[in-house]
């Protein structure tokens, strides 16, 4: 599992959902968070440095979660940055698109902290294999 001091970037245009994701992460044990209200602001935060894990919504104005994922994977500096999508989008075609864009994990809302934890563990395993 991730070092629980890892800086977690939570990206969602809904403040209640950011709170919910942070609460779930706190239950898992994470303590260090930064928030962004859309993908464009999320990209700024990633470029600001020290983000070790991104948990993002899909549907957002300005820059969606999938656009942010593609931007992250297209940049050599962040190619292996773990990024998990937590989204209400659960159609097969969308999951396939996310997997093809090298998403680290995919959680469909409504979700439990356990479901998020399982995806984070998978994301960490993938990261460890790459390293």
């Amino acid at each position: 599992m991730f070092d629980l001091n890892t800086r977690v970037l939570v990206v969602d245009d809904m403040s209640t959902m950011r709170k919910l994701v942070i609460k779930a992460c706190q239950q898992i044990g994470f303590t260090n968070f930064v928030e962004a209200a859309d993908g464009a602001l999320g990209w700024e935060a990633i470029n600001g440095g020290s983000v070790g894990l991104v948990i993002s919504d899909w549907n957002m104005p300005n820059c969606t979660g999938i656009e942010l994922l593609k931007r992250v994977r297209g940049d050599a500096r962040f190619k292996h940055l773990p990024m998990v999508l937590v989204t209400a989008e659960s159609e097969k075609s969308q999951i396939v698109e996310a997997v093809q864009a090298a998403v680290s994990g995919y959680v469909v809302k409504p979700f439990t902290p356990d479901a998020l934890k399982a995806q984070l563990e998978e994301a960490h395993k993938r990261l460890t294999k790459v390293a």
Binding site: M14, T16, M17, N59, T87, A88, E89, S90, V108, K109, P110
Partner: peptide
């Protein structure tokens, strides 16, 4: 957000 999740499902 609640409606968004319901709509997504």
């Amino acid at each position: 957000e609640l409606l968004n999740i319901i709509f997504g499902a």
